[in-house]
């Protein structure tokens, strides 16, 4: 083996060993962080419950063949609500992942944004405006026109940003429809 090959080979082997060790050390903490993140979102959108909703879920296959995880909120033995994560693919920059909690009556119990890359100061008002997401609480498929005001719906858009609210409203509407056909109590 030439000296060049040996040198590169050695560097790669050492690098691989370091990465294997670091991966082993960080895998559990990373998984725990991600679980906590989901759990925090679930607790914030579901009606008051007594179980760990992230460990109480079932997966359903929806119309277009994709899988959706339904997280169940229980108080004692009763299922009091369902949460599901939906993705708005039509935001201003990239996907917006949203957790929607829905109670037994098909009314929204809470909405949380899991991740987004919307413009700071414009699109991200959906998370910084304290009144916007809570506005959805208590609304259902039948009592609300699901669209932004510009499109003839009931939902406020923000000054200078219509695309983000439109995408979010569409995704929440889709979550309600999914739940209407898949949530079982």
């Amino acid at each position: 083996m030439s000296r060049m090959t040996l040198a590169l080979f050695t560097v790669c082997v050492i690098g691989a060993i370091i990465l294997a060790l670091v991966d082993r050390a960080t895998r559990a903490p990373i998984a725990e962080q991600q679980r906590q993140e989901v759990l925090r979102a679930l607790d914030s959108v579901l009606p008051p419950h007594t179980n760990s909703a992230d460990q109480d879920s079932r997966t359903v296959v929806v119309g277009d063949g994709s899988q959706v995880v339904l997280y169940l909120a229980r108080r004692g033995d009763n299922v009091v609500g369902t949460a599901l994560a939906v993705t708005a693919p039509d935001g201003y920059s990239g996907d917006i992942d949203i957790m929607v909690g829905i109670d037994r009556g098909g009314r929204i119990s809470g909405v949380a944004i899991l991740s987004h890359a919307e413009t700071p100061g414009l699109g991200d008002k959906m998370t910084t405006d304290r009144d916007w997401l809570p506005w959805f609480r208590g609304r259902s498929l039948t009592d609300t026109q699901w669209g932004v005001k510009k499109d003839g719906g009931d939902v406020d858009q923000f000054t200078g940003a219509t695309i983000t609210p439109r995408a979010v409203v569409g995704a929440i509407h889709r979550a309600l429809e999914l739940c209407a056909s898949h949530c079982r109590y």
Partner: peptide
Amino acid sequence: TVVDLSMNAF
């Protein structure tokens, strides 16, 4: 990658 994984974890 070490920094990336550590930041993700901690």
